[in-house]
Simulated assay, not measured.
Amino acid sequence: MKDFFKTSSFKVLMIAVVVLLGLIIYTATAGGSVLANMLGFVSSPMQSISTKAAGSVKNFIDLDGLSKDELKQMISELETENAELLQQLVDYYDLQQENEQLKVQLDISKDLPDQEMEAASVIGRDPSDVFYGFSIDKGTLSGIAVGDPVITQRGLVGIVTQAYATTSKVSCILSEEVKVGAISKKHSESGVVTSNIQSAASGLVRMNYLSGDTELEKGDIITTSGSGSIYPEGLIIGEVQSIEKSENDISQYAVVKPYEDLKNVTDVFVITNFPGKGDEGTEIPLASPGPENSEDAEAKK
Rank of each mutant, 00 (worst) to 15 (best):
Asp3His: 13
Phe5Leu: 11
Thr7Asp: 10
Lys11Thr: 10
Leu13Glu: 01
Thr27Leu: 03
Gly32Leu: 07
Gly32Ser: 08
Leu35His: 06
Leu39Ile: 08
Val42Ser: 12
Pro45Gly: 09
Lys52Glu: 13
Gly55Arg: 09
Ser56Gly: 13
Ser56Phe: 11
Val57Tyr: 12
Asn59His: 11
Asp62Thr: 10
Gly65Phe: 09
Gly65Ile: 07
Leu66Cys: 01
Glu70Asp: 08
Lys72Glu: 14
Met74Ala: 11
Glu79Cys: 06
Glu79Leu: 12
Glu81Phe: 05
Glu84Leu: 14
Leu85Gly: 05
Asp91Ile: 05
Tyr92Pro: 03
Glu98Gln: 10
Lys103His: 08
Val104Asp: 02
Ser109Asp: 07
Asp111Lys: 12
Asp114Glu: 15
Gln115Cys: 12
Gln115Asp: 14
Met117Ala: 05
Ala119Cys: 03
Val122Phe: 08
Val122Met: 09
Pro127Trp: 04
Ser128Val: 04
Ser128Leu: 14
Asp129Arg: 08
Phe131Asn: 02
Gly133Met: 09
Gly133Thr: 07
Phe134Glu: 03
Ser135Arg: 13
Lys138His: 09
Gly139Phe: 01
Ile144Thr: 02
Ile144Lys: 02
Ala145Asp: 11
Asp148Gly: 01
Val150Arg: 00
Val150Leu: 03
Val160Glu: 04
Tyr164Asp: 13
Ala165Thr: 13
Thr167Trp: 04
Ser168Gly: 07
Leu174Arg: 03
Ser175Arg: 06
Glu176Trp: 05
Glu177Asn: 11
Glu177Met: 05
Val180Tyr: 00
Ile183Trp: 01
His187Pro: 04
Ser188Lys: 14
Ser188Val: 07
Glu189Pro: 11
Glu189Tyr: 14
Gly191Cys: 03
Val193Cys: 08
Ile197Arg: 14
Gln198Lys: 11
Ala201Ser: 15
Ser202Val: 02
Met207Tyr: 05
Leu210Cys: 08
Leu210Pro: 02
Gly212Thr: 05
Asp213Glu: 14
Asp213Pro: 04
Glu215Met: 11
Lys218Ala: 09
Lys218Gly: 04
Ile221Tyr: 00
Thr224Lys: 01
Ser227Ala: 15
Ser227Leu: 13
Gly228Pro: 03
Ser229Asp: 06
Ile230Ser: 09
Pro232Gln: 07
Pro232Leu: 04
Glu233Ala: 11
Glu233Phe: 10
Gln241Leu: 10
Ser242Pro: 00
Ile243Gly: 06
Ile243Tyr: 01
Lys245Phe: 04
Asp249Thr: 08
Lys257Glu: 08
Asn264Leu: 04
Asp267Ser: 07
Asp267Arg: 09
Ile271Leu: 12
Thr272Lys: 06
Phe274Thr: 03
Pro275Ser: 07
Gly276Ala: 08
Gly276Tyr: 05
Glu280Gly: 12
Thr282Leu: 13
Glu292Phe: 07
Glu292Asp: 15
Ser294Trp: 14
Glu295Tyr: 15
Ala297Ser: 15
Ala297Leu: 15
Glu298His: 14
